[in-house]
């Protein structure tokens, strides 16, 4: 069993090598999108590698996804937010997302139309924050993933249900159509700043568990975030 995985890893790294060699002939393609300092250490390649899927789950997932995107959008990449309802735009600005290069797309929730929309967005946008509809078929998901890899975009998956906890809390049990390369599972430990009527919400401690198929060893971080 262990041998198998090792073999796979070597295979993958060879593939990666090939990809980078191909890309060396086309110097205008940046292989990695930059991320801000405070989240860089969470990611295995200290950046968002193009063609990959990152899942931000848990109760601080959306704000984490926004801060992952911030530096790249400031440097000229475009961000598409697909199917994420109720996104707080003010929060996006505070995380540093350049709103002038952000597009919000509201596709229908049926499997086929959702995947067509995401595929169209992948064509021209570097970064996507998406909420995956529950009924997405595995076939459509695979097609989207292939397109993502060939177009060298980065997709960040977030949960869209904060108040219906049955789904978002048992993130590991749910059927996941996309096989994420990096999974950042967040859990708020405590909020600071408010005290029985005084103050205002300022910081929170978040436990972030990093796993996924591109992560060698599962790691846990305890981070204090401004939101």
């Amino acid at each position: 069993m262990q041998l198998d995985t090792k073999q796979r890893i070597t295979e993958l790294s060879i593939k990666e090598l090939l990809v980078t060699q191909q890309l060396n002939t086309k110097p205008q393609v940046v292989e990695r999108l930059a991320v801000a300092d405070d989240v860089r250490e969470l990611l295995p390649d200290s950046g968002l590698v193009r063609g990959r899927i990152v899942r931000c789950s848990g109760d601080a997932g959306l704000s984490l996804a926004l801060s992952l995107c911030s530096l790249a959008t400031q440097q000229g990449s475009w961000l598409g937010v697909v199917g994420v309802e109720h996104l707080g735009l003010l929060a996006a600005v505070e995380h540093g997302v350049a709103l002038e290069r952000t597009v919000l797309v509201h596709p229908p929730k049926t499997s086929r139309e959702w995947s067509i929309t995401v595929a169209a967005a992948i064509e021209g946008l570097d970064l996507l924050i998406v909420a995956v509809p529950e009924r997405l078929s595995v076939n459509d998901a695979r097609r989207v993933q292939t397109r993502l890899q060939s177009r060298r975009a980065v997709m960040i998956i977030v949960d869209n249900t904060v108040l219906s906890q049955s789904r978002s809390m048992n993130g590991s049990n749910e059927a996941q159509q996309f096989l994420a390369d990096v999974v950042l599972d967040t859990k708020t430990k405590s909020w600071s700043g408010v005290d029985k009527g005084a103050g205002y919400l300022q910081h929170r401690d978040v436990r972030i568990r990093v796993s996924g198929r591109r992560v060698a060893r599962e790691r846990n971080y305890l981070v204090t975030r401004s939101c």
Binding site: T102, V103, L104, V105, I116, T117, E123, G124, L125
Partner: peptide, 22 residues
């Protein structure tokens, strides 16, 4: 340029009210 093209394509797919900017 590519992003603008993609946005055009998206608005064509979904209708202009489903593709928004802030």
């Amino acid at each position: 340029e590519t992003a603008t093209q993609a946005i055009g394509r998206l608005s064509e797919l979904l209708g202009s009210s489903a593709v928004q900017v802030a």
